[in-house]
Write a protein that binds this DNA or RNA. Structure first.
Lengths: 230, 230
DNA sequence: AAATTGAATATTGTATTCAAACATCACTAA
DNA sequence: TTAGTGATGTTTGAATACAATATTCAATTT
């Protein structure tokens, strides 16, 4: 006695998902103006649900609304990317700790399966696969934490997506050969139920990536900051 | 050459703010159905901007949307309140650390002004004032951290609002006489620029509140869980 | 009486419409 | 040439309109 309208999915949500993936997949590029009429026609909906979807994306900071002028795909600043990493350091640290506390044997087995046959060469293919596995791994880790609010936050603020917005190595900040041992140690700490160790390792993992990112940014800045087209 | 439409504030945002404060102030109570026609008439707007505002509030989890049935004011579960505290423990810990790193003399002075002439008696008036000061203090602390993303998250997820949703002592989990010394120590650690100490104290502060909350919840459950009118 | 049906009514989700704000561009004046 | 001005066309923000779905409640059946 409660599965009435449930199943039904409103148009605006579909539009929201579609648009979001277009932005994440770079089909819409930072700075692009969102032509409502055009997108609405493409999606075969009116501007009403599109507008709603855009407002949602605005809240997530994927698009920027300028009143009376329209919506633009947002560009993340260096500062924001850094902040995303800083947040992940503590939030995924927390998730790792909780995961280690409540993990089931079946989950531990699945967790240990990650990166099992990773290709650590420098091939483009290998890097790409590793980057994908990296995302899946972190996603699963957060899931394991069972912290709904945390989950929502990371999801809605695209914290993770932002983290892969570096322009080299498929968004990876460090080379697989460097992060692989860290992943293995973290997996083992969680799978074997050692919360303190898991949290420490997760934080270390992000901390190192953040330091690396900082170094790169400083270097980039020193080399002469390219003008971004406003 | 960029302050064109800026200044203008769309209707849906005004409606959003108005509705949000109605919910936070309990003019709309958990479980209440939101009658769009009625609210729109009251606010003197059409349903279009109201709908948009409701979608925003849905994303923040202040209201729940049931497709084809409407929007309802959400009730926060005990679990959610606990999770809010758990998050604040680490997020405000981080904010405190950063605040201590970058605080200016003027800010330090303002910070030291908090709770200066707090009324620590048991009078309803005193408790209320203290609760208000508590909110302002934590708000300022987060501001001082200068962590925009963190700010947004705490704001948008109503993490702080949820924390004051306890039904006793104006939402305070512990008595002012107990928290006052903790506040003082934390203020001093930040104002005098001791990041590690500040983070430790902030986390301790929340940890204790969370433990207290847990105790109360267990007790309440043991005494017999009251049916909530569903 | 309790359950079921189904028309009447209300509400929702979306499309359409419209006025006001903004962009564009040709034209004028310095 | 360049800055300013106004005519013209777009785009936005919001109201209204409307079809689909949900709710209500009286009438009917069991």
């Amino acid at each position: 006695m409660r599965k009435l309208g449930t199943r039904h999915e409103n148009l605006d949500f579909k539009v929201y998902r579609e648009l979001k993936s277009m932005i994440v997949d770079r089909k819409l590029k930072p700075g692009d103006k969102i032509l409502q009429e055009k997108i609405a026609r493409e999606f075969g909906v009116s501007r009403t649900p599109l507008m709603c979807a855009l407002k949602k994306l605005e809240q997530e900071k994927l698009v920027q609304a300028v009143p009376r002028r329209g919506f633009y795909v947002r560009r993340f600043t260096r500062e924001e990317v850094l902040q995303a990493f800083e947040l992940r350091e503590i939030l995924e640290g927390l998730a790792a700790r909780r995961a280690a506390q409540i993990i089931s044997p079946a989950q531990a087995e699945r967790l240990r399966g990650f990166f099992r046959d990773a290709d650590l060469s420098d091939s483009a293919q290998g890097i790409k696969r590793y980057a994908e596995e990296d995302r899946r791994f972190h996603q699963y880790l957060i899931e394991l934490g069972g912290f709904d609010l945390l989950n929502d936050i990371l999801e809605n603020y695209n914290i993770i997506t932002v983290s892969y917005r570096i322009d080299v190595m498929e968004g990876l900040v460090r080379h697989p050969r460097e992060t692989m041992p860290e992943h293995e140690a973290l997996i083992e700490a969680i799978a074997s139920g050692r919360p303190e160790q898991a949290e420490k390792l997760a934080r270390q993992h992000f901390h190192r990536s953040r330091q690396q990112l900082l170094r790169e940014m400083r270097q980039e800045k020193a080399e002469g900051p390219r003008r971004r087209p406003d």
